[in-house]
Design a protein around this nucleic acid. Sequence first.
RNA 1: CGGGGGGUAGCGCAGCUGGCAGCGCGCUUGGUUCGGGACCAAGAGGUCGCCGGUUCAAAUCCGGCUCCCCCGACCA
Length: 477
Amino acid sequence: MDKLTSQEKDFSTWYNNIVLRAELADYAPVKGCMVIRPYGYGIWENIQSILDKMIKSVGVQNAYFPLFIPESFIHKEKEHLAGFSPELAVVTYGGGKELEEKLIVRPTSETIINAMFSKWIQSFRDLPLLINQWANIVRWEMRTRLFLRTTEFLWQEGHTAHSTHDEASEMALTILTIYRDFMQNTLAIPVIYGTKTLSQRFAGAIETYTIEAMMGDRKALQAGTSHDLGQNFSKAFDITYQTKENKLDYVWQTSWGVSTRLIGAVVMVHGDDKGLVLPPNIAPIQVIIVPIWKGDEKGKTVKAVLSLEKRLKNNNKDSGSSLRVRVDTREEFTPGFKFNEWEMKGIPLRVEIGPRDIENSTVTIARRDEGTRMVVKSSEAVEVIIRTLNEIQKNLFLKARRFIDNNTYLVDDWKEFKHKTGFILSHWCGSAECETNIQNETNMTIRCISMDTEEEEGKCIFCGKQSKRRVVFAKAY
RNA sequence: CGGGGGGUAGCGCAGCUGGCAGCGCGCUUGGUUCGGGACCAAGAGGUCGCCGGUUCAAAUCCGGCUCCCCCGACCA
């Protein structure tokens, strides 16, 4: 097996190699599309199951809407249409005949879901209506990258309707908080969060909230969005309800989503030159046990290995959160080969049980995040493994946090601004013109107007006009 | 859409001054190994991206087409 291209040498090649060699995904026969392989899909399933519980915890229910959207629906909200029309896939034939009305393959489901909402919502008693769906969508992007931007991708999209703007706005922020917590606690990826500028707002929203993460090459990746849609869609789709006072009013709405892009983020935030590094909370395999034997020791070794596997799997079994463990008993590979292979796949912990361990009643435990090894008593193995997995989860977050901190700069000088890479906190006057000029000259965009920064008097980094707060600039994926 | 690279065994590639289609890894079988990518032996595996042309003869030369990847513009 060849060595990986290093991150340092070519981050993009490194990323592609990891995705392919860790068997997360493969290129599909259709341009811009990918096949998510079992190992990569296992990560997605873990993301789904954890995030799904969080979404449901605030009263949202799952449903499923069709892949096809009548073309006329897309035309109902004009900003939405303008934003999406360049990247739509359209079906014109079906059953051997040209269709009377073309069908759009959904690029997002606001239109078809809201068409249904207008049927379902009559009274204030029907509100709030809180719906989520796990689905695939299609956007005909010019340039694609595995997980980060593919023609078809998987995501969850939430769509809600409320009786007041305050309530809708609060919903959009509640979801933003859920996304932030999920990123940080589950994926171990620190994020900044805030609002998008007008020019980067979702097509049809009155406010777009975003969470942004920093990848290993210091570029930003938008990891999730939550939109305050105001009444734009309810007016376009005539979603009205009768108030307590017997008046007719339009509902206030939100929509929000995260996608399989998160898997790409995990790769680019935690991965290293040995391969993938997975946070234990989403790793399909948390512990890999590698038996090592010479000659006739096989029987004893396998017995010890299977016994440890059983103890790990039975731990906490009743609470449904038992450890995900696998034993690598393949005889056609040497231990050294297996070590490298499982490191490529990012397994958080490796347990080795060999002749020395058998003799001393110990096991050897190797951490993927720090590359360290320790020998512990067999009787204490389960306890140590659980504790270490927790430490790895925390350590990955702290390392990533430190990386962001070390690559975030307060910049007030234009020359300095142009030469920095990372998150740049600078003043901006608020004009779209400056935003565009800055992008043209530096390739950097405003990632978000962070909710964590205080108001502060200053001067726009580009034009020098008055500014009330710093915003976050970065080059982005 | 602009710039670059590429399509030859499952993967990575060589062969391109026409003349029996190769190498490494992987795969199969048997044996020896096993604490950081083991070794020996014997095997299996190909319409050289597609169409056409030149030639006694084309992976190789000529024309056309097509698909993929990377960098940029666009975007989650």
